[in-house]
Amino acid sequence: MPLLTYTLLRLALFGATLGLLYLVGLRGWLLPTVAVVVALALSYLTLTKPRDAATRWIAARTDRRAAERAVFPKGDADAAHEDAEVDKRLQAD
């Protein structure tokens, strides 16, 4: 799952930045604040491919859900699936 990969990479980048800034001597409330800003900038610059993959995955998922809503306009996809299963089992008996 590309979204999970991208999230884990960003968390790892934040942890590495936090550790590096701690070793440099930054302490207190400023340490996580600067680490977040630096990790955000680094992730924007370095994680282009995983970010694009996550974006494509989210877009595909959104398209699939929109297609399901077009077939079942009231959002009754689960109910329709359950009804089909019940009908199938009743016909089998």
Rank of each mutant, 00 (worst) to 15 (best):
M1R: 03
M1D: 11
M1I: 04
P2L: 05
P2Q: 05
L3S: 09
L3Q: 13
L4E: 06
L4Q: 02
T5M: 07
Y6C: 12
L8I: 08
L8A: 10
L9G: 01
L9R: 07
L9W: 02
L11K: 00
L11H: 00
A12S: 12
A12Y: 02
L13W: 00
L13M: 13
A16E: 03
A16N: 01
A16P: 00
A16C: 07
L18W: 15
G19E: 08
L20V: 12
L20T: 13
L20G: 11
L20A: 14
L23D: 10
L23A: 14
V24I: 15
V24H: 05
L26W: 04
G28Y: 01
G28W: 02
G28S: 02
W29D: 11
W29E: 10
L30S: 10
L30C: 03
P32W: 09
P32S: 08
P32K: 11
P32Q: 10
T33L: 15
T33K: 00
V34S: 03
V34F: 14
A35F: 07
A35G: 04
A35N: 04
V36E: 02
V36G: 00
V37P: 07
V38Y: 01
V38Q: 01
A39H: 04
A39C: 07
A39G: 04
L40G: 12
L40A: 11
A41C: 07
A41L: 15
L42N: 02
S43D: 08
Y44F: 10
L45E: 09
T46S: 09
T46R: 06
L47F: 09
T48F: 07
K49S: 09
K49E: 15
P50L: 07
R51N: 07
D52N: 08
D52C: 00
D52Y: 04
A54N: 09
A54I: 09
R56T: 10
R56F: 05
W57P: 01
I58G: 00
I58M: 11
I58L: 15
I58Y: 09
A60E: 15
R61C: 06
R61N: 11
T62K: 11
T62D: 14
D63N: 08
D63P: 00
R64S: 12
R65Y: 13
A66Q: 14
R69D: 12
R69W: 08
R69E: 13
R69P: 02
A70S: 09
A70E: 14
A70T: 12
V71L: 13
V71W: 03
V71Q: 10
P73Y: 03
P73C: 03
P73T: 05
D76W: 05
D76F: 03
A77F: 13
A77Q: 14
D78W: 07
A79L: 15
A79D: 15
A79K: 13
A80Q: 14
A80H: 12
H81N: 01
E82P: 00
E82N: 05
D83N: 13
D83L: 13
A84V: 04
A84S: 11
A84Y: 07
E85L: 15
E85W: 10
V86K: 14
V86D: 05
K88G: 00
K88S: 13
R89W: 05
R89I: 03
R89C: 00
R89Y: 04
L90Y: 04
Q91G: 12
Q91I: 01
Q91P: 00
D93K: 11
